[in-house]
Amino acid sequence: MTGIQFDPAAIRELAKILRETDLSEIELVEGDRRVRVGRSVTVAPTTVTVAAPAAAVAPAPALVAEVANDASHPGAVTSPMVGIAYLAPEPGAPPFVTVGSRVVQGQTLLLIEAMKTFNQIRAPKAGTVSRILVEGGTPVEYGEALLIVE
């Protein structure tokens, strides 16, 4: 510990905000002081419905493994926060990028709205967008793979 004192009431207030907003984590940075408060969140499994023949009811194991490995892909751009992902700057506007788009380092790829603030998610390197893993207007978690730049 660096000897920096934190206000327990402020930490309790951050925890209260987590509960009220259903967030899993919140961080406050003030100068050289940093407080991160997190909580365990139980996420219900998501069911994806795909129009397919009746014989193909369960997802293929290879597909499940691929989704799990997206965040560890060397070209994965992951979410730095919990929020809502937006692929375009405003409703009806063209998306920042599409599959096959060439991007340069620092180019805006998408936005994440967190606590009524829109945060630009920028390309960490130049390359081509090979996959977009989120849909506009959907919630994302910290560390979730958003897209792949190769």
Rank of each mutant, 00 (worst) to 15 (best):
M1K: 00
G3S: 07
Q5P: 00
F6P: 00
D7V: 02
P8A: 03
P8L: 05
P8M: 05
A9Y: 03
A9M: 01
A10I: 00
A10P: 05
A10Y: 08
I17A: 10
T21L: 04
D22P: 10
D22I: 01
L23R: 13
I26K: 11
E27L: 08
E27G: 15
E27F: 01
V29A: 14
E30K: 13
D32A: 11
R33K: 14
V35D: 06
R36G: 08
R36S: 13
V37F: 05
V37K: 08
V37P: 14
G38I: 00
V41Q: 14
V41F: 09
T42H: 12
A44S: 12
A44N: 12
A44Y: 01
P45S: 02
P45K: 01
T46P: 11
T47W: 03
T47H: 10
V48W: 07
T49H: 12
T49R: 11
V50Y: 02
A51N: 12
A52T: 10
P53L: 00
P53S: 03
P53M: 06
P53C: 02
A54K: 12
A55C: 07
A55G: 11
V57Q: 13
A58V: 07
A60I: 00
P61H: 02
P61L: 00
L63I: 08
N69Q: 13
D70F: 12
A71P: 09
A71K: 11
S72C: 02
H73Q: 04
P74Y: 01
A76E: 03
A76K: 07
A76D: 04
V77E: 05
V77M: 05
S79G: 08
P80A: 03
M81Q: 05
V82H: 13
G83R: 02
I84T: 14
I84W: 04
A85C: 03
A85H: 07
L87S: 07
A88G: 12
P89S: 04
E90I: 04
E90C: 06
G92H: 04
A93P: 14
P94M: 02
P95R: 01
V97T: 06
V97R: 09
V99T: 06
S101T: 08
R102F: 05
V103Y: 06
V103W: 07
G106E: 03
G106A: 05
Q107L: 07
L109C: 08
E113G: 13
K116G: 12
T117D: 09
Q120H: 15
I121Y: 10
R122H: 14
A123P: 13
P124S: 08
P124V: 00
A126R: 07
A126H: 10
G127F: 08
T128D: 09
V134Y: 09
E135H: 13
G136S: 15
G137S: 07
E141Q: 15
Y142P: 12
G143P: 10
A145Q: 04
L147T: 04
V149H: 02
